[in-house]
Design a protein around this nucleic acid. Sequence first.
DNA 1: GAGAATCCTGACCATTTGATCAAGATTGTT
DNA 2: AACAATCTTGATCAAATGGTCAGGATTCTC
Lengths: 223, 223
Amino acid sequence: MANNDAIPVEPDHGGGIRQRSRASIERRILDAAESVFAEAGFNGATTAEIARRAGIPKANLHYYFKTKDDLYQQVLTGIVNTWLHTADEITAEADPAHALAHYITAKIELAREQPIPSRVFANEVIHGAPHLGTYLGSELRSWVEAKAKVIRGWITAGKMREVDPRHLLFMIWASTQTYADFAAQISAVLGRDQLSQQEYKAVARQVTEIILRGCGLTPPNPS
Amino acid sequence: MANNDAIPVEPDHGGGIRQRSRASIERRILDAAESVFAEAGFNGATTAEIARRAGIPKANLHYYFKTKDDLYQQVLTGIVNTWLHTADEITAEADPAHALAHYITAKIELAREQPIPSRVFANEVIHGAPHLGTYLGSELRSWVEAKAKVIRGWITAGKMREVDPRHLLFMIWASTQTYADFAAQISAVLGRDQLSQQEYKAVARQVTEIILRGCGLTPPNPS
DNA sequence: GAGAATCCTGACCATTTGATCAAGATTGTT
DNA sequence: AACAATCTTGATCAAATGGTCAGGATTCTC
């Protein structure tokens, strides 16, 4: 766990040095924590390694974040907040094919651009989500119910084949996030260090095609 | 890497108490280890907890398995061996629709019946597969290439739509294993402690339908 | 039944790790 | 300048943990 280089310190241009410095150092710590948690999980992550990557002494880390759990909570909260608004285009008025294609493509792009937070979240859920409190059963559940209602509306309107919308969402999550969470496996099997942007586009197209056709929809022609 | 094969043993070829006891206690330890590794990951798992669940003193655990890493290797090997032969029905002669439907259904059933080993494996891969050595890039890669060749044959024969077989496999893995790995999330979102067997059958049917239709195949009528 | 092989276990150790603290350094305020 | 608030850090601690060991208990072989 001693690989990544420390995160470079940003110059402190103008404005209250204290406040700005505080914000930037907290950001550095959170970024460092994110990567360490993603690589080692909550238990395997050490505050010493997080501090090292953030470029500060361990004692200083504990000045900004009282406990390791506190730090982990903040990382999880950040991820969750990012994810809450990724399917805004799934609305009753939208065209199902376009909305789903857009959602799937966006999720694949997210998997490519930000695999690390995805892994922290996946790790947390695999271990039974002990630090997620009631989030999954309340907020996320409501979110899913709302989206499911939209999709059921599409089905009732005869716009797509009859499927269970919740399990359709699970399938989309799985098929897209696997490219972030299981990147090591995919890279090894394909024999590449990492996929090119072209390959990600091809993946997005294929996943979209299979799921849309599977729902009785015609995939929009990708431009 | 030294496992208990190195322990000088063998003079008991009669199924005596020694051999029987050793086999059963090793099984108990491996089962305990499996569950602890699944819950806490490699780093978070403690040999003390594994020993406690196996009902033996910690020192005795270290008699059967020299190191924690040794134990983990054996757990991983067991999982991998189980998985190696789950898609035997995917052959050049087989009917694509039936073969894929059978594979997907079998994987969903495996996710229901043995979610714990799946989680250990998922956890390992998420963290970059540091303990899997060259398995992903050699054995698994060859396995995927062989299956991909079969599917390409189906495509060439005009039996199914043109897709990248490797990413199709990734999609099947993701869509099925998510019901083992992310069970906590799925349970919470659906508001149930765990899915009934009926629900698993419905899931298998829906995943099969979407993927087969997505590949231009007609799902076989489930009997 | 005696001696050997195997198994069991409490006690122990070295290291790691999350967290604390006191003293010093820097920045803000009057 | 003087004093307060905030930040930094080396040193340190208590707990947890992977692993060892010596010696006792049990089972096997002859």
